[in-house]
Amino acid sequence: METIYTHWKEMLINMIDEKTATYNQELHKKAETDYLKRLLEKMATHAASPETLVTFQEEMNVLVEAIPTVAGFKDKEIRRDFIKKKSKLKNTVITKHKLVNKGYYVSIWMPLGIALGMPWGVVFGNIALGLPIGLAVGLAIGSSLDAKAKKEGRVV
């Protein structure tokens, strides 16, 4: 299975490179081509099961086919279709395969910490005191979860 995936991965990376050869740096960031290539590398070792790997391959094939040209990025419908497919793939990777972006948990836990710190600030009689405490707690939890994910090799 490894050699089949490796061949498919190399073929897809070449397709991404061909489709995005005329992109400037800004379009590469919008299309997240580096993320897609890193994701292809990570999935070889982090697929939950062979069935989910096949599903991932199908979704990735659809996404790579939907990568717009430079002119396609100016068309709202083409761009929106590509972004929807990319978001769906990212959500699948996070939920089924537990692969996350750098800073993923911090971005989730900081607002939660602030939201939890506000009521504590009210309890102590000073909201201004609760916000930084909640921020610090959210940052600490998010940072520890991000460090754990990096240690486990789950950061794309």
Rank of each mutant, 00 (worst) to 15 (best):
E2Q: 13
H7L: 11
W8M: 10
W8A: 05
M15T: 12
I16H: 08
K19D: 07
A21G: 04
Y23K: 01
E26I: 05
L27Y: 05
H28L: 13
K29D: 14
K30G: 10
L36Q: 05
L39N: 03
E41W: 06
M43K: 07
M43D: 03
M43A: 00
H46M: 07
E51W: 04
L53F: 07
T55R: 04
Q57C: 11
E58R: 12
E58K: 14
M60W: 09
V62A: 14
L63F: 09
L63I: 03
E65K: 15
E65W: 03
I67R: 02
P68C: 13
T69E: 14
T69D: 15
V70T: 04
F73W: 15
K74A: 13
D75W: 11
I78H: 10
R80T: 10
D81Q: 11
F82V: 00
I83K: 12
K84S: 08
K85F: 03
K86S: 10
K88F: 08
K98Y: 02
L99D: 00
V100M: 03
K102H: 02
Y104R: 06
S107K: 14
S107Y: 05
M110G: 00
M110A: 07
G113R: 07
P119L: 00
W120Y: 12
G121F: 01
V123L: 14
V123W: 11
F124Y: 10
F124L: 15
G125D: 00
L129S: 01
P132W: 12
P132C: 06
P132A: 01
P132L: 05
I141S: 02
I141Y: 02
G142T: 02
S143G: 15
S144Q: 11
L145M: 08
L145E: 08
D146P: 15
A149L: 03
K150N: 08
K150R: 07
K150G: 09
G153D: 07
R154P: 00
V156F: 03
V156K: 01
